[in-house]
Design a protein around this nucleic acid. Structure first.
Length: 491
DNA sequence: ATTGCCGGGTT
DNA sequence: AACCCGGCAAT
């Protein structure tokens, strides 16, 4: 059942799963221990510690999660709590009906704005466990308020109006059924109920429609919705105030009978407001010769990763894009162009309007860039010229320190954001060489490292040791140095 | 044999 | 924590 390599050594204990309770519904919990080993005749039985503290021994076939049953094989009972991705953000819902013959799960979900709607989903679009973020996003969602504050402190022409509802969803007030065929998240791989692996995707990059959708209805809770996005939208004005969302859980009533375990759910309530601002922050690729602009940092990261770096460079794409601010007008007009110009610079003309402020990133996930950058720091902004972009690194926490020797860029001290000329390290080249053979696995969004189940074949894996070689051990990420799981080339 | 990295040390 | 490393599993 645990077909993955190395699982032998990995304890299954602690695995997040959803386990069937006696009411026939699945509830989130973790494997606490092996209650009975698997035999040729019987399934293994595990002790599940449910999130509310209940424990129960459960046969593996009643467990959904990584290494266990896929959610797609489940028959969901009415009242089952489930999670799904809607317009790029995860929301929780309650199963109203599961028509297995038609592969339709009818769920009642609550939108950010509080509206309840019914949605039909395929079973493989539904998860029984709340997704987790990828590690790099993990520490970001904690602090929206802070970031919002920061926005305010930044105090720009952003008049946050008080009460314009989100246009799209406000149309949907009430209680109705919609069939959301596309989810834009491509969440289709079978490991439902596991974690972020299927979630961790950009989805808005390539088309404006998605952008609009998102700006209308997203809130920074989904795994895809990063802090950047939040800023993005705050600034943009589509989404401004309290996005009080429980990254974890504050459980609450469902409209079904509550059963023994009271698992956690999302509770979401975030009246979104709109303001009449025409500024919009976009993200522009700073790779030499490329000026692609995307609406979200996810998107631009994906672009950088896919186009310039390689499919699985986890961190380094951060340094190849920059935040720019544009007029919304311009955005909508010229956006389609920008989105598709992956490599042809838009040149001077269609450039968005004056970029202005920039927000420093708060402690981002730790990265290992000292050596990478030490090896080359050209620092020019020549290729940025056309867009009037004020190039800044989006994520600089670590680098700021390690690159302080580099005087070609200047850091403003707080509260001003660090502004710096982008530099263009060259290890990419080597990276590119090294990964030339690694096909992109963009099929199922294999972003997560948490699921050891679908790892790349070893031949495709890039690790510091492989990339930099034994003699450049000092260029390895710390984890590699310590013989721990590589953090630079997550797979 | 080499590589990735878990698990469990020590500082 | 940060760091180190024996040893297992995959290749």
């Amino acid at each position: 059942m645990f077909g993955s390599r190395r699982l032998a050594k990995r304890s299954i204990v602690g695995t997040r799963v959803a386990a069937k309770w006696q009411d026939g519904r699945y509830y989130a919990g973790v494997i606490k221990g092996v209650y009975a080993e698997e035999t040729p005749f019987t399934d293994a039985v595990y002790t599940i510690l449910f999130e509310d503290g209940y424990e129960k021994s459960t046969p593996s076939k009643s467990i959904v999660g990584p290494g266990f049953q896929p959610c797609s094989t489940c028959v969901l009972k009415k009242g089952q709590k489930a999670f799904l991705t809607l317009n790029g953000r995860e929301i929780s819902g309650t199963v109203i009906n599961h028509a297995t013959d038609m592969d339709e799960v009818l769920l009642n979900v609550q939108l950010v704005n509080g509206d309840e709607i019914d949605i039909i989903k395929r079973i493989d679009e539904v998860r029984l466990l709340k997704s987790r973020k990828s590690a790099r996003l993990q520490d970001q969602d904690t602090d929206y308020s802070k970031m919002a504050d920061l926005q305010l402190t930044e105090a720009r022409k952003r008049t946050v109006s008080s009460g314009i509802d989100m246009p799209s969803k406000s149309v949907q007030h009430g209680y109705r059924t919609i069939h959301l065929a596309d989810d834009t998240d491509g969440n289709t791989n079978g490991t439902v109920g596991s974690d972020e692996s299927s979630e961790d995707v950009e989805m808005m990059d390539e088309n404006i429609a998605a952008l609009v959708l998102t700006s209308l209805s997203c809130s920074p809770q989904s795994p895809q919705f990063t802090a950047q996005d939040f800023r993005d939208f705050t600034r943009n004005g589509h989404l401004s105030s309290s996005v009080a969302s429980s990254g974890f859980h504050s459980n609450q009533s469902e409209h079904s009978d509550p059963s023994p375990p009271t698992p956690s759910h999302l509770s979401e309530s975030a009246p979104a407001t709109t303001s009449a601002i025409q500024k919009k922050t976009m993200y522009q690729c700073t790779w030499p010769g490329c000026n692609k602009i995307s609406a979200t940092c996810e998107a631009i990261e994906k672009h950088v990763r896919d186009t310039h770096l390689g499919s699985d460079t986890e961190n380094e794409e951060d340094f190849y894009y920059t935040e720019i601010e544009v007029n919304v007008d311009n955005v909508t007009r010229g956006f389609s162009d920008m989105c598709t110009s992956a490599s042809s610079p838009p040149a001077t003309g269609s450039a968005p309007a004056t970029p202005s402020f920039v927000i420093p990133d708060h402690d981002y996930q730790k990265k290992e860039f000292r050596q990478v950058f030490a090896s080359s720091v050209p620092s020019t902004s020549a290729f940025l010229g056309h867009t009037h972009a004020m190039p800044i690194p989006i994520k600089v926490s670590e680098i700021q320190r390690s690159l302080s020797w580099q005087n070609t860029h200047t850091y403003a001290t707080s509260p001003s954001p660090p502004i710096r000329i982008s530099n263009r390290p060259s290890p990419q080249e080597r990276l590119q060489q090294h990964q030339a053979q690694s096909p992109k696995l963009h099929t199922g969004f294999p972003t997560s490292k948490s699921l050891s189940i679908h790892k790349k074949p070893r031949s495709e894996v890039r690790k510091c040791r492989k990339v930099y070689g034994m003699d450049n051990r000092d260029m390895w990420c710390t984890q590699c140095k310590w013989k721990k799981a590589c953090t630079r080339f997550l797979d």
